[in-house]
Design a protein around this nucleic acid. Structure first.
Length: 587
RNA sequence: GCUUCUGUAGCGCAGUUGGUAGCGCAACUGAUUCGUAAUCAGUAGGUCAGCGGUUCGAGUCCGCUCAGAAGCUCCA
C-alpha cells in the first residue's frame, strides 16, 4: 500500500487508478460535509462498484436538498486542486490524533486494526482523514462536473443492527461528464427491465396493499410458472427424483422437534387448530422427514431423491420485501436426498451439475458461495466440520471457484449457494445445496445396511430455481420480458390486415392451437401498424401478418419481436420451425 | 424492523404563495378496412392511500397509520 497516488496511466482502464479515483471522491465528500456541517462525525468511506459512499453520524437527516449543497461543495473542492498528502503514524499517535479531531468512529476503527498494521492518514488542505488509500495526488484530478451524489440512506455502524444507524451518502464519479451521463442512462435503461415494472406491463403478476409481500399470479404469469415446472419435472425425473407434496400447516410439536421453533420462530406464521398450536411451514424439510419415516428403508433405496414443489411462508421484515425477489410466501423447487455418508460427495456433485444444467438453459452467469456454521446452530462442531468438508470436496472435485461466506449457513447445516444477478447487478441467492446431519438425527431416520444393522442416513436439502417466484423475477429481467418461445405466455399473435382475412386468420390460429401453441388473434379494426406495435410491446415472439396475398397462397408473413420481417412462408414451414424452437427450448 | 424519500383515474404524470381536480396512453362507443411500432371523433372513469388535526376553506400545511422505492440488517 505504498505510493499508489503515483500510478500511471491516469485512466479508468487502470483498475488501481480507478480505485484511487473513487477513494479520493469519497474523501472529497467527507471534506465537503465537514466544511458545511462541522459537527458531523466521520465513519468510513470505501470505494465500491461504480462509485463510493461515506458514512456520517449527523444530528440531522441528510435530505435531497442537503445532498445538492454537498455536491456543489465537492465541485468547489475539486476546483481548489488541494494536494493530497499521505502520512503514517504509530498506533498510539494515530489514536491521539483521531481523538483530538473529535472522531469517535475513527478511534474505534483504529482500535480494531490488527497489531502492526500501517495506519495512514491523508491531508488535503485543512482536512485530514484516516484512510488506507490509495488516493490521487490532488483533488483537482477529480472532475467536478462528472461526479454525482446518487442517494442518502441509513446504514448501521459496522453493519450491526444493534448499533447506531448512520447516514450513508452514495455517489459516483467519472473522468468525463459524458461517462457520468452514459452511466446514468444505463441505470435508466436497466430500470426498464425491472421485473416489477414488466410484471405489470406484461400482465404477469401483481401485488396488492392487502397482501404485502404475497404475490398474485395472473394468467400469463401462471404460464411462465407452469412451463418452468414442466421443465423442472422433466430434468428431475431423468435425474432419478420422485415427487411428493406435504401440508403447509403442521403441528407446532413438529417444529419444536426440527429445531425451527427455537431457531426460526421469528420468521414463522402461527395459528391454532382446535386449541392446538400450529405453524405454516417456512421450509419443507420436516414434512419430508415424516414421509421418509413413514416406512422402513434399505440401503438399496439410497440415495432417495425426494422432490417437492413446496409452498413456504416466511415473515420477512417489511423493509426487506422486494417485488418477486423477496416475498413472504413462495414455492421452492425443493428436494431432500437421503443417503449414506459415502454417497454424499457424488450426490452433491450431481446436484451442482443439475443446477448448472438448468442455469445454462437460460444463459445465466452465476457465482457460488460456501456458507459455514452460524452462531445460532444445532449439532456438534464435528458434524459441521464433516458436513462442510463434503461440500468443499465436491466443489474441489468439480474445480468450481467459490467465495466463502463465513457464518452464513442454515441453522442445521452448511450450504453451497448459487447467486444470480438482477438488471441492476444486485445478486440474489437462487440455487442452494445444504448438507444436513441434524434433521436425520432429530427425527431418528434409519436405513438397514447390507450388514442387517440400522444406520443413520445423511441428507441434502437442495433447490435449483430456489424460489420459483424469485427465479421468474430474475428471468424477467434477464430477458427484459422477451421470454424464449417455449415459455412465452403468448407465442404467436395473428394479425389480419382487414376483415377480408378474418376467416383465414381464424383458421391459422385454430391450426396453431391444435398443435398446442399459445396463440391470439387481433380482430380489432385497427391499422396493421397499430396491431404490430401492441404485439411488439407485449414481446410476443412471432406475429403473423395476414393479408389477401397470404390468404390466397396459404402462406403467413412472419415478423419477429426483434422487428425482423421474415417475409411470407408456407404455413407448414412456420409451424415446423416454431415447434422445433419450442421443443428444443431454444433461447 | 431501521434511515431517507414517495403515494393524484387501470398505467405514466400536471396541479403555481391552501379557494372543493386536469393531461397523455389504456378502456368504452361510433366512423374508418387502412400491408409491418400509434387513424379520427366522442363517452365514461377520481371518497386526491387511510384516519385525525390546523383553517371560513386542504390534493396542497401538521400528526399518526398503511403501502411502495433506495439502502442497512436479514434471507430463497
Amino acid at each position: 500500500m505504498s505510493q499508489e497516488q503515483q500510478v500511471q496511466p491516469y485512466s479508468f482502464e487502470n483498475p488501481e487508478f480507478r480505485e484511487a479515483y473513487r477513494h479520493t471522491s469519497s474523501h472529497i465528500l467527507a471534506q465537503a460535509m465537514k466544511r458545511l456541517y462541522p459537527t458531523v462525525k466521520l465513519a468510513i468511506g470505501p470505494a465500491i462498484e461504480n462509485g463510493f459512499y461515506y458514512d456520517f453520524d449527523t444530528d440531522f437527516p441528510i435530505t435531497p436538498e442537503i445532498l445538492e449543497e454537498v455536491e456543489k461543495e465537492m465541485r468547489k473542492i475539486a476546483k481548489e486542486k488541494l494536494k493530497l498528502e499521505r502520512f503514517e503514524l504509530p498506533r498510539a499517535e494515530a489514536l491521539r490524533l483521531a481523538e483530538e479531531m473529535g472522531e469517535p468512529y475513527k478511534v474505534e476503527l483504529i482500535e480494531a486494526l490488527p497489531e502492526g498494521e500501517v495506519i495512514s492518514f491523508y491531508r488535503q488542505g485543512e482536512f485530514t482523514d484516516l484512510c488506507a488509500g490509495p488516493h490521487l495526488d490532488s483533488t483537482g484530478r477529480v472532475k467536478g462536473n462528472a461526479l454525482k451524489l446518487t442517494s442518502a440512506t441509513g446504514a448501521y455502524w459496522r453493519g450491526d443492527s444493534s448499533r447506531k444507524m448512520l447516514q450513508r451518502v452514495y455517489g459516483t464519479s467519472f473522468q468525463k461528464k459524458e461517462e457520468l451521463d452514459a452511466y446514468l442512462a444505463r441505470i435508466e435503461e436497466a430500470k426498464k427491465r425491472d421485473h416489477r415494472r414488466l410484471g405489470r406491463e406484461l400482465g404477469l403478476f401483481l401485488f396488492q396493499e392487502e397482501a404485502p409481500g404475497f404475490p398474485f399470479f395472473l394468467p400469463k404469469g401462471m404460464i411462465l410458472k407452469n412451463k418452468l415446472l414442466e421443465y423442472w419435472r422433466e430434468v428431475h425425473t431423468q435425474a432419478g427424483y420422485v415427487e411428493i407434496s406435504t401440508p403447509i400447516l403442521l403441528d407446532q410439536a413438529l417444529w419444536l422437534r426440527s429445531g425451527h421453533w427455537d431457531h426460526y420462530q421469528d420468521n414463522m406464521y402461527t395459528t391454532e387448530i382446535d386449541g392446538m398450536p400450529f405453524a405454516l411451514k417456512p421450509m419443507n424439510c420436516p414434512g419430508g422427514m415424516l414421509v421418509y419415516k413413514s416406512e422402513p428403508h434399505s440401503y438399496r433405496d439410497l440415495p432417495l431423491r425426494c422432490g417437492e414443489i413446496g409452498l413456504v411462508h416466511r415473515h420477512e421484515l417489511s423493509g426487506a420485501l422486494h417485488g418477486l425477489m423477496r416475498v413472504r410466501c413462495f414455492h421452492q423447487d425443493d428436494a431432500h436426498i437421503f443417503m449414506t455418508p459415502e454417497q454424499a460427495k457424488d450426490e452433491i456433485i450431481a446436484v451442482a451439475k443439475l443446477i448448472d444444467q438448468v442455469y445454462s438453459l437460460f444463459g445465466f452467469q452465476y457465482h457460488i458461495e460456501l456458507s459455514t456454521m452460524p452462531e445460532d446452530h444445532i449439532g456438534s462442531n464435528e458434524d459441521w466440520e464433516r458436513a462442510t468438508n463434503y461440500l468443499r470436496e465436491a466443489l474441489a472435485a468439480m474445480g468450481k471457484e467459490y467465495i466463502i461466506n463465513e457464518g452464513d449457513g442454515a441453522f442445521y447445516g452448511p450450504k453451497i449457494d448459487f447467486h444470480l444477478e438482477d438488471s441492476l447487478g444486485r445478486t440474489w441467492q437462487c440455487g442452494t445445496i445444504q448438507m444436513d446431519m441434524q434433521m436425520p438425527e432429530r427425527f431418528g431416520l434409519e436405513y438397514t445396511g447390507s450388514d442387517g444393522e440400522k444406520h443413520r442416513p445423511v441428507m441434502v436439502h437442495r433447490v435449483a430455481f430456489g424460489s420459483i417466484e424469485r427465479f421468474i423475477g430474475i428471468l424477467t429481467e434477464h430477458f427484459a420480458g422477451a421470454f424464449p418461445a417455449w415459455m412465452a405466455p403468448m407465442q404467436v399473435k395473428v394479425l389480419p390486415i382487414t376483415d377480408r382475412t378474418a376467416a383465414y386468420a381464424d383458421e391459422i390460429a385454430a391450426r396453431l392451437l391444435a398443435k398446442g401453441i399459445r396463440v391470439e388473434t387481433d380482430h380489432r379494426s385497427e391499422k396493421i401498424g397499430y396491431k404490430i406495435r401492441e404485439a411488439q410491446l407485449q414481446k410476443v415472439p412471432y406475429m403473423l401478418v395476414l393479408g389477401d396475398k397470404e390468404a390466397e397462397s396459404a402462406q403467413v408473413a412472419v415478423r419477429t419481436r426483434a422487428g425482423v420481417d421474415q417475409g411470407a412462408m408456407d404455413y407448414a414451414q412456420f409451424e415446423a420451425q416454431l415447434l422445433e424452437e419450442i421443443h428444443t427450448r431454444r433461447t
